[in-house]
Nucleic acid binder design. Structure first.
Lengths: 234, 234
DNA sequence: CGGAGGGATTGACAAATATCAATGCAACGG
DNA sequence: CCGTTGCATTGATATTTGTCAATCCCTCCG
């Protein structure tokens, strides 16, 4: 066990340098010397749908870079209500708040099979202190989070239920591949746009009847972007 | 004119070092040497209610540190709708997105008389490149923005109209002084919590009748926190 | 003083959404 | 293969919220 951890720690710098999607991730701008500052193991982990990356109550130990997949960030109201405040995809980072000493601010749950790099917070802290090359990437990640959050407020929390759902699907379609996007459960759709499960279901059913979306399998569909934009306006 | 600008540039470092609220602002951690890197004028400006700090269409030249006051960040939907996505108070920064090369993401409008430091983006860019002491403060500002945005999604965009308004007022009460908080126009309340002006008005009127809030003047009120928390739950 | 103008409030009604309940559908395990 | 289980869908109503319009209340200005 000890040995394995040490191996991982030793290999991490090399593996990171060779990472196929490094241009997309937090460590994009680091150089060889920077990687030598990594003295704790960074593990690549895979999760399947429904798995929990972490909960707000978990010990704040790791940041996660999303290599592949889709996750939801859930936040709870004092009265028990819950709301999905964002969705993470390739290149996003979960747990940035740890860098400023905060506990995890969300529960993070896997929607589509996901691969992540699990990075000890100490590693990023150290790099953050000693290499300016990480700073810009950190700022970019924060900025992206704010932009997304603002968009969820303006796009997904305003207007009629149906148009909110339409705008959500257009957003998910941009994340997905050309003709296939992740269609969340009706309950999750409701939690994303602030409506009930039933109303979400009615909207989706209506889109299906109108032929604006076509169900491919239980969790995926294709949509007619032009038509859907019509629905998104009122 | 030229001369005045040069004077300002020369004075900025000293004035910033002596700033009475420096512990609250972006430059909190800078040292004397850092301030020598400032080669463009930082001006302190005052705005009265209704003034516009900037619009999305403005040239991206300045960041603003809020010394005092209250402002709203407004974002527009393609179909013309608008939504207030956040409110800024003392210590907050407007225009952080410029540091990453983005244009202004909001229109920023003064709600209560406001003093700001207007900082040329080049100054922050330079400091950001050359002093790590600024980084932590930048990250803190971004983090605060995300936390606020998430809270606006969960607190102010979920539940019945009345409870959203209640939660908004509780939030504003925390910003204000002990027994006096800024009570926005009904139209702004609507734009903050995603309901119509009329529904906002009905909620406020109901709170007044129930004695949960007391109007002090046109734009200020006091509230009974305990009672209001009752309303905020359903 | 009187009148104009800009919010705020209220009422009446329409429309949208939530709620409660039943049914349909498909995957899964025994 | 059949029953169970977990969603999704749909229907029937109850509530909430939006819409349209009128009135009220101030403040400002001539």
């Amino acid at each position: 066990m000890k040995q394995r951890e040490i191996d991982a720690a030793w290999q991490a710098p090399r593996q990171c340098e060779l990472c196929g999607i490094r241009h997309l991730v937090l460590f994009a701008d680091l150089d060889s010397d920077d990687f030598q500052l990594i003295h704790k193991p960074i593990d690549v982990l895979s999760y399947s749908a429904g798995a929990v990356l972490y909960r707000t109550s978990d010990a704040p130990e790791y940041l996660f870079t999303i290599r592949q997949g889709l996750l939801k960030l859930v936040q709870y109201l004092p009265n028990g209500g819950q709301r999905i405040v964002r969705v993470l995809e390739q290149g996003d980072v979960a747990g940035l708040e740890l860098l400023l000493g905060q506990p995890y601010q969300h529960d993070v749950v896997v929607l589509e099979p996901t691969d992540v790099c699990r990075i000890p917070v100490a590693v990023v802290d150290r790099l953050s202190r000693d290499t300016p090359r990480l700073h810009r990437q950190l700022l970019k990640r924060w900025q992206r989070a704010v932009n997304e959050a603002d968009a969820w407020l303006t796009d997904l929390s305003t207007g009629s239920a149906r148009s909110r759902v339409a705008r959500l699907l257009l957003r998910l379609a941009e994340i997905g591949s050309a003709d296939r996007f992740y269609l969340p459960s009706r309950e999750d759709i409701g939690a994303m746009v602030g409506i009930t499960t039933e109303t979400a279901s009615r909207s989706i059913a209506e889109f299906k009847r109108a032929g604006v979306i076509r169900e491919l399998d239980a969790k995926h569909a294709a949509l007619d972007e032009f038509e859907m934009k019509g629905f998104s306006e009122k």
